[in-house]
Write a protein that binds this DNA or RNA. Sequence first.
DNA 1: CTGTTAGCGCCTTCAG
DNA 2: CTGAAGGCGCTAACAG
Lengths: 348, 348
Amino acid sequence: MTLKRPPYQPRDATRAVTIRDVARDAGVSVATVSRALNHRGHVAEAVRLRVREVADALRYAPHPGARNLSSRSTHTLGVVLPVLHGEFYSSLMRGIDQVARSHGLHLLVSSHHGRRDEQDAALQALRGRVEGLIVMSAAHAPGEDAGLLHIGVPAVSLDDADAAGMSTIAIDNRGGAVAMVRHLLSRGHRRIAFIGGPAGQPEAVARELGYRQAMADFGLEEWVVEGAFDEASGHGACAGILRQGLRPDAVFAGNDLMALGCLFALTQAGVRVPQDVALVGFDDIPLAAYAHPGLTTMRVDAAELGRRAVRLLLSSTGAIADPDIEPGLLATTLVVRASCAAAEDPEA
Amino acid sequence: MTLKRPPYQPRDATRAVTIRDVARDAGVSVATVSRALNHRGHVAEAVRLRVREVADALRYAPHPGARNLSSRSTHTLGVVLPVLHGEFYSSLMRGIDQVARSHGLHLLVSSHHGRRDEQDAALQALRGRVEGLIVMSAAHAPGEDAGLLHIGVPAVSLDDADAAGMSTIAIDNRGGAVAMVRHLLSRGHRRIAFIGGPAGQPEAVARELGYRQAMADFGLEEWVVEGAFDEASGHGACAGILRQGLRPDAVFAGNDLMALGCLFALTQAGVRVPQDVALVGFDDIPLAAYAHPGLTTMRVDAAELGRRAVRLLLSSTGAIADPDIEPGLLATTLVVRASCAAAEDPEA
DNA sequence: CTGTTAGCGCCTTCAG
DNA sequence: CTGAAGGCGCTAACAG
C-alpha cells in the first residue's frame, strides 16, 4: 500500500470552472452535465434545465483541449498560405472564413513566405490541432514532393501542382492568360508585350506560360519583360518598354497592380491608352474599374476559391455532401473596359 | 471486484504515434521520453540521443491538446478583428504574424464583421484555446462594455476605447486628421470638404472628429459629405461636391481609396488636381504614390501596429521584457505628394 | 434516465 | 538518473 499523496496541483489560483463544479452545484454527475450540455443521449428536461442554469451562473465553458483529447475533434481548420496580406490572399481568407464560420469551425492560420522550411514547420505545428488543412504550398521543383504527405488529415491544395493525390482546387491562371491574349488578338493586336511576375511564384509562372502558349499558337513573337507584381515594377517595366525602338500594340501586365503602374508611366510619357497602346491586367482589383481609362482585366475570384476550398475539404471529410464542389480549376472572367479598345474600332 | 472490461478503444486504425510508442521502442519510460524531448530535468546523454532517434524514426510529434491539457499552455494567440481582408487588416495580420511566429506562437483568427454577437461568439470560442488575445472590437456605445471582460487571458485592444483596464494600442486617427487639416491650412486652403466613412466605424469616427476639431479650432465652417471608405463612394461623394455651387479649395477624403475615387471623378469632370482643387487622403496605400498626381496622405503603419500589439501582449504576460513597448497611440505620418500643392506656390 | 469509471496523451511529482 | 503513477477536463461505455 502506498501512502496517500498530496493532490496534484499545477493549477493556478484563478482556475477556470470545470464540468465538475457544475455537476456538484447541480447535484448530478459529470456525465449528466456533459450529456445535458451537448444534447447527447437522453436527459430529463428538468435536469437539463437545471444544469444549463447552473452552468450559466458559473460561466462555465468546456475546456477545448480536454474535449479535443477525449473526443478527438478540434473543430478547427488549418490554413497555410504563402503570405497573409494583399488583395488576393485576404480575399481568399475572407472566403475561407465565411464558410468555415458557417460550419462552426475555427481557423488556425500560418504563412510560409514561399519557403519550404517554414512550410514544413507550419504543417508540423498544426499536426493534431486541426481536422483539415487548406494549403497553398511553397514553390517546389516539379519532381519534388510538396511536403504535404504525412499530414494525417484531409487537405486541399490551392496549387495547380496536385500533390500526392490530394484534392486540388486552383485559379486557372494559365487559361486566363491564354484567354486574355486571344482577346487582344481578336481586337487586332499583334505586338503584345507581357510583364511577368516574380520568378518561381506559381501564379506568375502560370500566367506567363499562358501568354507564351497563346502567342506560340498564333506564331507570334514573345516579348516578355520582368516584373515583381507591384506597382513600382509595372512602372519600371513599362518605362523600359517605351525606351525600346519598337512600341508594342498592347501591354499585358501579369497583374493589375503592375498594369496600374504601367498606366501611370504611359500617362507621364504622353502615350495615350488605349489610342496609342492597349493595356490589360489580371486580377480585377477594385481600383481597376476606377482607373482612367478603366482597365480591361481578368477577374480572379479569390473569395470564391476560398469558399470552394473549404466546401471541398468538408465534403471530403463527409461533413457535408456537396455534389457541386469538385476539385479542378476555377475559371477567371474577362472584364472588358476602356483600356483596351478594339483596334478595328477607330473612334475609340 | 469488478470484472475486467475490454480496453477502451475509440481510437481509429490510423492512430498517431504517442509518447508511449517511443518509450517502448527506446526501452525507457514515458517520463524519460518526455524529459529527453523537452530538455527538462536530467537525462543521460546516451539515453537522450536514443530517444531522439526513435522519436524521429517514428515521426513522433507530441499531441498539442494533451500537452495543453497537462501543462496548461497552448502556444497560441487569438486575433479577433472586424474583418480579415483589405489593405489595413491584412497588413495588421502580417505584423502580428511576424512577431508571433518569431516567438513560436500560433494564431487563431476570427472576424466579427462589426457585430457584437459575433464578437461574443468568437471570444467564447477562443476561451481556453489561447494564451493571449488581440482584439479590435465591434462598435459599441461609449458607456457599454466592449464585451472583453471575462476573457481570463491577457489581452490588448486595438481600439481607442480602452476597455476595462485592458492594454490598448491604436492608430491615432484623430490626431492624424487634425494634422492633415493643419497641413491644408498651412498651405492656404480654407474651404475644406471632408468625405467621411461608414457611420459608427471607429476609424471613420475618429478621423471625422479630428477634421471637425481642427476646423473648429480655426473657426472654419465644416463641410462633411458621407462616404463608405471605398472608391465608388469617393467617386460619388466627389461628384456630389462638384454639383454644389461653391467649389472647395481642398477635398480631404477619409481614406485613400475614396481619395482615388475622387481623383478619377475630378479628372473626368475636367477639374485639375492640384491646380483647381487640392486632394488628400488617409492611409498611404501603395497606389497613393503612383496615382497621377501622387496623393498627399497620412501614412498608417498597420503592420507596425500589429507588431507592437503582439509585443505589448507578450510583455504583459512577462514572456518578453520590452520596455519600449507601451500602450497608447501610434502616430501617423504626413506624406506630402503632388496632389496638394502649396496654394501660395503658383508654379505647382 | 443517470451515475461510475476508464481512458484520451502528456507532464510532473515522488520514490527508488 | 530513471520509473511509476496521478491528474489535467472531458467524453463514452457500461451498469444500474
